[in-house]
């Protein structure tokens, strides 16, 4: 049984004037198995972020059904860690305090945070160090560069070790080298902890390198128009991205996106 499933989902955002608005996604159907790493690609504005919000219960479809961990989603799901397209850090909290936020909300950490504060702080600092932000815990978000903010937001999605990780273009504002470094971080975490990941990205190499399966969405109103299983053996080394097998897959996906844009 799939861990996350969207079944014939239609979603529209209401107009400001209260009108019916337009469809953002239509007939969206997808299934993600437990522990699977799925990447979603598609033209800008096709409803990828909407998909993420539907799957986490931040938005509710007006038609169709969303299920997570076997249950119909009627409220924000509690097992997800989410990194949004923009960093959305709280400006009044330091980087470290921003990282501790999920632990202040999510059970069982919530009950333990007072008692185990130093342990949690250490965990946050380790996580920061793993994305190259060691020693930046005391800085406020506005003292960080855009890429550093995004890395922080990635850490925030991970800190409470969620069973479902939702990443909406988390590496968008990063340089190529940091980006590849973070691919490694995510790859290793996924391998070690076995959580389920849904990753939205515009970078086809990123999708192919990380994912078990890549889903291609059509232009708005978005739905899945193509699905590509990536059978490259794991653990994947960055070197794999320079093989011809890899570039063939990227090339093939690119063709589908070009079609989807039309």
């Amino acid at each position: 049984m799939s861990f996350v499933s969207l079944d014939g989902v239609n979603h529209r955002y209401p107009d400001k004037g209260g009108g019916p608005g337009f469809l953002a996604v239509e007939g969206l159907t997808m299934n993600v198995a437990r522990g699977e790493f799925v990447a979603v690609v598609g033209p800008s504005g096709c409803g990828k972020s909407t998909l993420m919000k539907l799957a986490t219960g931040l938005q509710f479809p007006f038609q169709g059904e969303v299920r997570v961990a076997g249950e119909r989603v009627t409220a924000p799901v509690k097992i997800a860690g989410m990194a949004f397209q923009s960093p959305t850090l709280l400006p009044w909290r330091s980087t470290l305090q921003n990282l501790l936020l999920p632990l202040e909300i999510v059970e069982p950490h919530r009950r333990q945070i007072r008692r185990r504060k130093s342990e949690y702080v250490a965990r946050a600092e380790n996580l920061l160090a793993s994305v190259g932000l060691g020693g930046f815990g005391d800085k406020f978000p506005w003292e960080l560069s855009g890429g550093m903010q995004q890395r922080t937001s990635l850490c925030r999605a991970l800190i409470h070790e969620p069973a479902l990780l939702m990443l909406d273009e988390p590496f968008g504002a990063l340089d190529a080298f940091t980006r590849e470094e973070l691919w490694g971080v995510i790859r290793d975490l996924h391998a070690a902890r076995g959580f389920t990941v849904i990753l939205v990205t515009h970078d086809l190499r990123e999708a192919v390198f990380l994912a078990d399966r890549v889903l291609v969405m059509s232009a708005r109103p978005g739905r899945i128009v193509h699905e590509r299983r990536i059978d490259l053996p794991r653990p994947r080394d960055l070197e794999v991205t320079f093989t011809s097998e890899f570039s063939d897959i990227v090339h093939e996906l690119r063709g589908h996106i070009v079609k989807a844009r039309q």
Partner: peptide, 10 residues
């Protein structure tokens, strides 16, 4: 967006 951050955590 800020609200969503917290809502997504339940």
């Amino acid at each position: 967006e800020l609200e969503d951050v917290l809502k997504a955590l339940g």
